[in-house]
């Protein structure tokens, strides 16, 4: 195994007296798609706030490519929940936002983004405002804004949480295809078990607050997933298994599951 791109070592964080994260250790390899799965309010978003530098760890350490996070120079491109597109900017100018903040000129930024519109299913909508687009298109525009920043790693915070079920399923398939092609190093936060199983190479399951890693699952299914009966059945079995872990409040089982480690293979 190569050196991890991202390494969290026994990270803890509290909001005042309220412990949110406890002893979180995880790694992400280059080109790996890792999901963080946990119940609502379990501190998944706090994890991303730590990574994007909005807050700093109380205990433990985060390293990126072997360097402490503070010296790694903002290695993440972050995609927030919902799309956070600026309603006053046309789609083209929304997608160049990250480049603009980096100080790249408008013309140059547009030249970098424009060729990607077709691949993201947005060709012809460069001059439209976000309000004129469907939910799925807006989400694709938000992802385009994220990947065009050309950062070593993507952080996706429940990117499809606000979409209807059908659009979401379509977007998951689309993202899987895009990921297969580009092999971004990515960390996805979600509470959708199916989404995590469909997209991830590996899943970390978090406990309710204070969040600890209660399980780490390798998803060894061939891609694309969920298109044929065999992988569908395997995926369903893994989903059911994870759901059991999440819904069982018994802490003994939690420790038990953690010690058994990976579920597949």
């Amino acid at each position: 195994m190569s050196a991890p791109r991202l390494k969290l070592d026994q990270v803890g964080y509290s909001y005042g007296d309220l412990p949110v994260l406890e002893n979180i250790s995880m790694t992400v390899q280059p080109g790996e798609f890792v999901s963080i799965l946990g119940p609502s309010g379990s501190g998944k978003s706090t994890l991303f706030r730590l990574l994007t530098g909005a807050i700093t760890t109380d205990t433990g350490a985060i390293a990126f490519d072997g360097k402490p996070l503070s010296e790694a120079g903002r290695p993440f491109a972050f995609m927030p929940q919902r799309d956070a597109l600026m309603p006053w900017r046309r789609i083209l100018d929304n997608t160049t936002l990250g480049l603009e903040v980096q100080g790249i000129g408008r013309k140059q930024a547009r030249e970098r983004v424009s060729p990607l519109f077709a691949e993201f299913g947005l060709a012809g909508f460069e001059e439209n405002y976000p309000a004129e687009l469907s939910g799925g298109m807006r989400q694709r525009a938000a992802l385009l804004r994220t990947v065009v920043q050309d950062k070593p790693m993507l952080l996706l915070d429940e990117p499809f949480g606000a979409l209807d079920a059908l659009t979401r399923a379509g977007m998951q398939r689309w993202l899987e295809a895009m990921w297969e092609k580009h092999r971004w190093t990515a960390m996805l936060v979600t509470h959708d078990v199916r989404e995590a199983v469909h997209l991830s190479d590996r899943i970390y399951v978090l406990s309710p607050r204070p969040a600890r890693v209660i399980r780490e699952i390798e998803i060894d299914l061939p891609r694309p997933r969920g298109r044929d009966a065999a992988t569908r059945a395997l995926a369903a079995a893994i989903e059911a298994d994870i759901l059991e872990t999440l819904l069982r409040p018994d802490p003994d089982h939690v420790d038990d599951a953690a010690s058994h480690g990976s579920a597949s293979s």
Binding site: R49, G53, A54, F78, P80, V101, L155
Partner: peptide, 14 residues
């Protein structure tokens, strides 16, 4: 202002 928009910009280093 949408908090997520500000979080996004902060994550970009603005």
């Amino acid at each position: 202002t949408e908090p997520e928009l500000q979080q996004l910009l902060a994550s970009m280093g603005a």
